[in-house]
Each structure stands twice: as structure tokens, then as C-alpha cells.
Write a protein that binds this DNA or RNA. Sequence first.
DNA 1: CGCAATATTGACCATCATCAATTGGCGTGG
DNA 2: CCACGCCAATTGATGATGGTCAATATTGCG
Lengths: 247, 247
Amino acid sequence: MQIRSLPQQEILVRKLESIHELAEEERQVLRDLALRIVELPARTDFIHEDDRPTESCLLLDGLICRYKIVLSGKRQIMSFHTPGDIPDLESLFLSVIDHNHAALAPSRVAFISHRDLRHLIRRFPNIAEAFWRDTLIDGGIFREWVVNIGRRNAYQRLAHLFCEIMMRLRAMELVEDNSYEFPVTQAELGDATGLSHVHVNRTLTELRQDGLVEIRRSRVNVLDWERLKQAAEFDPAYLHQKGVDLS
Amino acid sequence: MQIRSLPQQEILVRKLESIHELAEEERQVLRDLALRIVELPARTDFIHEDDRPTESCLLLDGLICRYKIVLSGKRQIMSFHTPGDIPDLESLFLSVIDHNHAALAPSRVAFISHRDLRHLIRRFPNIAEAFWRDTLIDGGIFREWVVNIGRRNAYQRLAHLFCEIMMRLRAMELVEDNSYEFPVTQAELGDATGLSHVHVNRTLTELRQDGLVEIRRSRVNVLDWERLKQAAEFDPAYLHQKGVDLS
DNA sequence: CGCAATATTGACCATCATCAATTGGCGTGG
DNA sequence: CCACGCCAATTGATGATGGTCAATATTGCG
């Protein structure tokens, strides 16, 4: 999940421009933000329930998920985050974190202080709007996950997940030839879709046999986008991407 | 679900104060907002996928849900909304609606124009923050629903839902003697929890037999709050209510 | 090369869905 | 006031989807 030849100051600009119009001055102040870069090894929990962070983290490279553990020990992954995302942007206004953040793959993140972010949104209402919009899209993605887990079977759930990640990576130009890096284990796919890893395995076999997707060592290769979308009943409207939904 | 002796201009103030501090001037401009009052009969769809509203609606009285339908015809309810909520506040920044809103019970809503809301948040950053915070809490509730549906069984799911609604209504002082109005059918409970209405019925019977809750004609009566919370593994932190989480 | 994590497969079982029939509650019109 | 009708709730019977347990194969990596 490399953003090749894209300087790190450019990542946030590209992300926000995929959902909202920015002026050149706004792009520039985003590029000038102070970033505290941290490298996270795979399988690192780095933000925990009950934390009260003073920074938010922009994912530059890698893969992050947010999850909760229930008492029975089961894990539910509630979201995946790809480069450009700020998974804990909400901590700017919800001071106590209510779930965990983990890097699934080796990742590079850039922490931005809440002080700087507050300063930014006070001075640039249009940037505030872009951030707010981003958190709202996040909410829309959660809603769609509720639908996915609540009302679709295993086959559709996985197909839908692959569609969603495809569209989100595409907006950041991280998809090549209908194929993208997605370094998750089958157990993690199960934790995200509310399935057991055994059933994920069987369902992935089906998807492969049907010629829809192929998953080889952390890479998703979409073989038949149209049929995959159809199987998943995928409608990208909820992602509110510019140029996709015409808002 | 009546807010007794509370004038309608006060409802939004009470709601926002349950999650954020307001100054008297801010309370006053909230009271002065122009409201277009509409009465909705039970079972009315009133905002639809693909709509581009120019107003957002504040629920004054009744019960609203948001839902999507999947191709198989199944419905997934993604949220319930109680008085004080602005279920479509996000339409202020996501111009195309991606799901449906319906009144489940006879309801009274107050439409507020986006123009007025934009004016408000430009002039009062602290009100903007309260609204933003509200949409973030909304997102937190969706995340918890993902966990609920993905990793808990029928018994826990329903218990958790009753806990959540209890806490939210309590913040608006709509709970009396551990009992509250919640006019939903068992089919609707199923649509919200990803269960069939038959299984909801059986599970409610269990909850009643175990002495946790009693549901009689659209009223939920919590008989044993502690054991209900325990059964649901309910932790209200994700609701980010003032005085509950100390943020 | 060898360990450890991950993927795969089989057997069996549990939860919950579906189908179908019956009961109960309640508003409406005669 | 009562009967009808409709919607919601309830119950039983059966079946499907997906979970759990366990064993084996494969892959990545030091």
C-alpha cells in the first residue's frame, strides 16, 4: 500500500480533494502542517479505549483498523483505514476514545496536534467543512457496515467489503489494474464481517471459483468488477466521493 | 414519548446541553431559530435516498428511524431517533441523502433551513462544535451497532438496544421509573438488530422470563437495570454524554 | 532448514430463519 | 354495543447458514 512518488505533505491534500473543493491557499496551509512521523510495525495497537489524545493521526502508508473486543473475547473490526484517512479525527471533539486503533500492516502515520488542527479550522472554515464532511462520510460507512452485517450473507458481505475498499483506494490512486494491496488475514476479515475465519475461508474459495476476486498474499485482485458489484449489491453513493456522487 | 411542559424552542437547547457546554447567548440564538413544524403520522417515510434537502429536521416528539432496503427486500434499520435528535443534520454537508428516514410513531418535527444553520455555525463556533460533536456521537452509535450485530447473540443485542435507548432518553428526561415509551413493533426490532421478527418474539419472551425487561404495547419497562446492562455488556461510554463520560 | 502463523478441510452442532397456523388487541362501521 | 377485519404477537415444525473443534497443509521468514 505505497503511495509512490507522492510526498507526504501531499497526501492529506489529495484525500480532502477527493471529497471537497479546496482553494490553493487552503492546500498550502495543509501542506505546511507540522507532522510527527511514526513508524508502526504490523499488529501494533497504538490508540486505546479511554485514551485522551492531544493529536490525531493521518495514515501515510499501510493499513489501520478500529475495533472493539466483547467480553466473550470476540473482536469486531468496525473500520479499515487506508492512506489519507485520519481515523481518530473525531478525538478533536470527543475527548475520550471509545475503541481501539491498530496497525494491521507495517504503517507510517503522521500525528498532527489538536492545537494546530483547531487553529486551522478556526481560520479556514472551508477546511473545517472538509474535515466535518470527512467525519460524516465515516458515519455513512459505518451505516453501510450495519446493513452489510445485519442483512447480507457471508458471500455478499465479503464481496461488499472488497468493493468498498476498492473504491476508497481508487480515490487515492492506489488501485492498479483492478488490484490493490490489502494485507489482512482471513481471521481479520472475519472480525470485520462478523464471521468466523473458517467460514471466511470457505466463502473466499467460492468467490474465487466464481471468478469474482482472487486474494493472494495480502493482495486483492478483482477479476470481474461488474459481477462483484452485483453480487454485493454495491452502490458507492454512501462514500460521497466527488465525481461519483454529484453533490 | 411526550416532552411534558417543555416548550419546543427548549428541546434543541436541552439536547445540545446534554453533550456540550453552551453560553446563555448561544442558548438564546438556538431558541430563536425559525422552525417549520410538521406533524407526521405513524409509518411515514419523509426523507428518501437521493433527496437533496435544504432543511434539516429536529425531532420534537415521536420516534424516527433511518433505514436501508437491500435487494432481497430485507430492511435494516440503522438508527432510532428520539426527541432532540436531528437525524439528518449531516445533510448540511453531504448534500445527497443515502438512506431513508421514517416516522415510526406519530411524530412532530421542526424543519430548520440549512441557510439558518450555516449562518449559526459561522457566527457561533461553539454551536458548530456542539453540532459537530453530535454527528460524531452519531458515528459512535453506529460503531456500537456494528459490534452489536456482528458479535452479540439475539438476547444480548436486544438487551443492548434497550440499554442504549434508555440512556439516550434519560438524557432528555424522558424516562420515568425505569420505563419509557418506545413504540416499535417486533418486526421493527428485528430490522434494527438483524433478526427475524419470530426470533425477536422468542428472545423478548426470554428477557421477560428472566425478569430483565417487560415490553407492553410500545412501552419498555426495565425491571432490573443492573442485570440488563450486564447481559448486554453495556458500557455507555460511546454515547459521550456529559456527566457520564467526563470529557 | 525449521518454526510459527495462516490457510484449508472435514465433521458436527447451534443459532437463527423460514413457513405456517393460531391467538390476541383494537379500531371501525353497522 | 358488538362483529368484523386487520395488524401484531405468539407458537410449532423444519431447515439453512454459519460456528466450533480438530487435524492437516501451506506459506513466510529468520
